[in-house]
């Protein structure tokens, strides 16, 4: 495993820890899109179907379990925890996320590496992950008040896939890995969707001002 891949995974883990910290310590999910969190549950559930059938490494298995358990528990907190769920911005989080699931699934049926259940679902998870942040970005844009934990959560989440891009370049060059267009293009789209957010995040950080996205 190269340094970009490890840094990417750690950033991903960090983003989830930041979100859990917000939920646990502030007992709040204000500014967090339940729609995006539900999409991540679907992403991990369809990608990690091989968890009990294919063993890569201890690291790999543990990380998969962590991503599955944390994504499920975040959704549980937002829907059912008696304090946390009252802080959910239901009226602002109106993105129709089902409209992302269907086209991603159709695309995975059409464009995949091999037409098997496992390969199509894995491909679907990559396409869906690329766009899963959209409800969250829309909610951020509607929020007048973005707290630091929410801003950092989205920043780390975006940085994770950006680091994976470097990992793929490294693997292609150094390890002579095969061409992997599906994850590469999905990852590129995923990172590009954050460009606008990154711009305002870094700008506010430099000026030491509170993060606010233009409507």
């Amino acid at each position: 495993m190269n340094v970009f891949r490890l840094a990417g995974d750690m950033t991903h883990l960090l983003s989830i820890m930041v979100l859990l910290l917000k939920i646990h310590s502030m007992k709040s999910c204000a500014g967090i899109s339940l729609k995006t969190q539900e999409l991540y549950v679907l992403v991990f559930a369809t990608r990690y179907l091989d968890i009990f059938t294919t063993y890569f490494s201890f690291y790999n298995t543990v990380m998969k379990i962590v991503f599955l358990v944390t994504s499920f528990s975040i959704v549980w907190y937002m829907r059912h925890h008696k304090v946390v769920r009252q802080t959910y911005d239901r009226d602002q989080d109106t993105f129709r996320h089902h409209l992302l699931v269907i086209p991603c699934f159709l695309l995975a049926l059409l464009i995949n590496h091999r037409f098997t259940v496992r390969e199509v679902l894995w491909t679907f998870s990559l396409y869906l992950e690329a766009v899963a942040i959209l409800p969250q970005l829309v909610l951020l844009q509607r929020s007048r008040n973005i707290d630091n934990l929410t801003g950092n959560y989205v920043f780390f989440l975006g940085a994770y896939r950006g680091l994976y891009l470097f990992n793929w370049i490294y693997r292609y060059m150094a390890e002579k890995s095969q061409l992997r267009w599906i994850p590469w293009i999905s990852g590129l789209v995923q990172t590009a969707l954050y460009a606008d957010f990154f711009y305002y995040y870094i700008k506010s950080w430099k000026k030491r001002e509170k993060l606010q996205l233009p409507a």
Partner: peptide, 10 residues
């Protein structure tokens, strides 16, 4: 048919 894509990433 093509081989499965490697899935050693997260």
């Amino acid at each position: 048919s093509a081989a499965e894509q490697p899935k050693d990433e997260l």
